[in-house]
Amino acid sequence: MVDRPWADVPQLPPASATYRNGVLDGPVRHYGPDRRLRTERWYRDGRPHGPWRSWYENGRLAEEEIFVDGRRVSHLAWTTTGQPISSVEAKHTRQPRAIDGEAGDTRTSDARHRDGDVGH
């Protein structure tokens, strides 16, 4: 496994991703301009597996989705003050939302998460 931090690349938001044999395998993290963690998503063999979390600028957890072998099995969300706003138990296969440049993203970007390149 290789962990590749890109915090010193000025034109891109700070991010890091872990790959095995050219495929996402482990955490993908994106940081805000203040260098605080904003999203963390886990992959296994290029598929979502484990927690996907995002945080508000105030540091509170905004959303958490749990994936098992590419399928979302739960989803929770909170307000900026920490109050629960939704709870969904997924009973069917769902395509996870991708951040620009992550696996599953179909938008065009100048940079991609592929062996040494990163996009936001």
Results as ranks from 00 to 15, higher is better:
M1P: 08
M1L: 11
M1F: 15
D3K: 09
D3Q: 14
R4L: 15
P5I: 01
P5S: 03
W6A: 14
A7Y: 13
D8M: 06
V9I: 10
P10V: 01
Q11F: 10
L12W: 08
P13Y: 12
P13G: 13
A15P: 07
T18G: 03
T18C: 14
R20M: 10
V23Y: 05
P27R: 09
Y31C: 01
G32A: 02
G32E: 02
D34K: 01
R36M: 06
L37D: 03
E40L: 04
R44A: 08
G46K: 01
P48M: 09
H49R: 04
Y56P: 06
Y56W: 04
I66E: 07
R71D: 04
R72C: 05
W78P: 01
W78A: 00
W78K: 03
T79K: 03
T80Q: 09
T80M: 08
T81M: 03
T81N: 04
G82Y: 08
G82I: 05
P84M: 00
E89R: 15
A90G: 09
R94W: 06
R94N: 07
R97V: 10
T108K: 11
R112W: 13
H113G: 03
R114A: 12
R114L: 13
R114I: 08
D115A: 12
D115H: 09
D117M: 07
V118A: 13
V118R: 13
V118N: 05
G119I: 09
G119E: 06
H120W: 14
